[in-house]
Design a binder for these strands. Structure first.
Lengths: 217, 217
DNA sequence: CAAATTTTTGACCGATTGGACAAACGTTAG
DNA sequence: CTAACGTTTGTCCAATCGGTCAAAAATTTG
C-alpha cells in the first residue's frame, strides 16, 4: 500500500502522520523560544534541536531548511497576532470597543511575549521575510478598521484624530511590555516590577487613552 | 622618542593619534549601520569592515574584538539617548514640559533611527550587555523624573496617574516610529507614509497625551 | 635623508555554522 | 513473519565565522 513520501514539501500537500504532526509542533515551540530571544541569524539549528529534544539531522527531517521553520512560525503568528484588531467591531459603544482592544492587546503581550518579540525582531531588521504581508493583508485590515474608527469620530462618539496613528500608539504601548520587558522590570525594580505590573499598565493605559493628562476641571 | 603603544586598551588611556580618531569614528559609524539592522550576532566583522572601507585585520587593529565595537557604541548611545529625559525640568509649565519631551523624543526617532534600533535590538534580546546600566543609571534617572512628575500631580498641574508607566508610554509611542518604521510606512502607504508622517504623528501624540479620546462636551 | 613607529594587508587558523547522506532503527500493513 | 515505509542518528562537508600573525607599506620624527 502507498505510504507518505517526503515530509518537506513545504509549499503544499500537508498530509502528515501523527508523529509528524507532534514533532513539527515540538520543533515550532522550541524554535519560537530560540528565535524570539536570539533573532533569526542569531539562532542555530543545533539550539532549536536541543530545545526540542532531538538531533539536528532529525530536525532537518521535518523542516528541510532553517528558514522553513521561521517561515511557518511567522505565518501562524500573523493570524493570531491580528485577531484582536479583527475583533474591533462597529457594533457596540466605541469607547468600550477601544478599551477592550487595548486590554486584549495588553493581555497578548503578557501571555505571548515570545510571539511579540519574534514579530518585533522581524520588523526591526526590515521585515525581509514578511514585507508583502505588511503592505498587503495588514494594510488592508488596518485601513478597514481605520474607516470604522473614522465613522465613530464623524458620529461624535470619540474625539477627532488620526485613526492610523491611534492604532500605532495602541500597538506601541501594549507590545512595549513584551518587547522591552527586561527594561520595564529593571526600571520598576523588584517591588513594582512584579506580576502586578500588567495591571498597573492596564490602569494607566485606560486613563491615557480615554482622558489624557490634562487635569480635570 | 616614545611613541604610542597598542591602541586597544579599551578600558582606559584614550590617547590617540589623528588617524586613530578618524578611523575609529569611521568604524563606529559603519558598525552602527550594520548592528542596527542585523543585531549583534547577525552582524559580521567583514560586513562592518566593508562598510567602513577597510580590511578586516585593519579594523581589528582599532578594535580588538567585535564586542568592543558594540560596547563603545552602546556606551555613547545611552548618553545621547537619555538626554531628552534629563532635560525634563521641574521649572516651567508641566504640560509644556511633557509636550516638549514627547516632541524631542519623536525628533530623535526621526533623526536617529539607527540608534533607536540598536538599542531596541539589545533590549529585545534580554539586554545581556547593558543590564547593569538599566538597573543602575537608567532606573535612577527614571525614578528621579518620576518624582518630579509626581510633584506636578500633587500640585494638580496634571492628572494623577502612574509616572513610570507614563514614561514607558512616551518611550513606546515615539520609538515605535523608528523601530517599526518599515511597518508604519507599509501600513500608511505611499501617500501618507511619506516625509509628513512624523508631523502627523506629532499632532496625534500631542492630542492623545493631553486630551485622550473622549469626545469634548 | 633615515630610523622609528604606525598603519595596512594577505595568508592563515580553529571553531561553528547550515546542511547532506547513508546506514541503522522502528513501525505498520499484509 | 517480512517487506515496505517512516524515523533517527553518526559522520561528514563546504562555507563562514572571529581572530592571529608576520611582513609590507605608509607615516612621523629628528
Amino acid at each position: 500500500m502507498r505510504r507518505l513520501a517526503k515530509v518537506n514539501t513545504g509549499t503544499e500537500a500537508p498530509r502528515r502522520t501523527r508523529i509528524q504532526q507532534e514533532k513539527r509542533e515540538l520543533i515550532l515551540e522550541a524554535a519560537l523560544e530560540v528565535f524570539s530571544t536570539n533573532g533569526f541569524r542569531g539562532s542555530t539549528i543545533d539550539q532549536i534541536a536541543e530545545a526540542a529534544g532531538m538531533s539536528k539531522p532529525n530536525l532537518l527531517y521535518y523542516f528541510r531548511r532553517k528558514e522553513d521553520i521561521h517561515e511557518t512560525l511567522m505565518q501562524r503568528l500573523l493570524d493570531t497576532w491580528l485577531a484582536p484588531l479583527r475583533e474591533l467591531d462597529d457594533i457596540g459603544d466605541p469607547l468600550t470597543e477601544l478599551r477592550s482592544y487595548i486590554r486584549r492587546k495588553l493581555e497578548m503581550a503578557r501571555d505571548f511575549p515570545r510571539e511579540s518579540r519574534l514579530f518585533a525582531n522581524e520588523i526591526l531588521q526590515g521585515a525581509p521575510r514578511i514585507m508583502p504581508l505588511l503592505a498587503g493583508e495588514l494594510k488592508t485590515l488596518v485601513d478597514e478598521k481605520a474607516a470604522v474608527i473614522k465613522g465613530w469620530m464623524r458620529a461624535g462618539k470619540i474625539a477627532r484624530t488620526d485613526p492610523w496613528h491611534l492604532i500605532f500608539s495602541i500597538w506601541a504601548t501594549t507590545q512595549h511590555y513584551a518587547d522591552f520587558d527586561v527594561q520595564v522590570r529593571a526600571v520598576l525594580g523588584p517591588n513594582r516590577g512584579g506580576d502586578g505590573r500588567f495591571e498597573d499598565a492596564a490602569r494607566f493605559l485606560e486613563q491615557l487613552f480615554l482622558d489624557g493628562l490634562k487635569p480635570k476641571g
